[in-house]
């Protein structure tokens, strides 16, 4: 992905900033600037998601494009955010066999990819199992 294209959505990718239609109340992440239900009568405002959700479905990517080849195998999932919308994201787990449908997850800040060794680093949101920290 080109630098301007990544940069344009940095705050959305880092902070799960989506949108909400004030007409029908539906929330959007990835963000939409046009409500598919209310169309022109809807007013779209920014809406920030809390980063908690549940795995709706998932896969383990074993063969990836060049940009992700060094990360395989990794879990890719569709996650339903608690506020409603669904998003595609990686789930970071100790062992890929941990992943399951219905798994509770929370968002974390990670490297998504890089443009080779000298190019830009793309940061963004991934998810991890939402389990309490053990007693210290």
């Amino acid at each position: 992905m080109s630098v301007p294209r990544f940069w344009r959505k940095i705050s959305k990718r880092y902070n799960l900033e989506g949108t909400r239609c004030t007409q029908c109340g539906r929330t959007f992440y990835p963000p939409r600037t046009f409500c598919p239900d209310c169309r022109r009568s809807g007013e779209i405002v920014p809406f920030r998601f809390q980063g908690k959700g549940e795995v709706v479905t998932f896969t383990v990517i074993r063969t990836a494009s060049d940009a992700f080849a060094r990360q395989t195998p990794f879990v890719l999932a569709i996650i339903r955010l608690d506020e409603g919308p669904r998003v595609t994201a990686q789930v970071v787990v100790e062992n890929v066999s941990e992943a399951h449908i219905g798994m509770r997850v929370r968002s974390v800040f990670r490297r998504i990819g890089t443009e080779g060794d000298s190019g830009v680093i793309y940061y963004g949101t991934k998810f991890v199992p939402d389990v309490p920290y053990p007693e210290g």
Binding site: Y14, R70, Q71, V92, V108, F109, R110, R111, I112, I121, Y123, K126
Partner: peptide
């Protein structure tokens, strides 16, 4: 660090 962690991701998680 994990494969996708670096100083920036650690700094962000600590700040958050």
């Amino acid at each position: 660090p994990d494969l996708d962690e670096d100083t920036a991701t650690i700094a962000v998680e600590a700040a958050r």
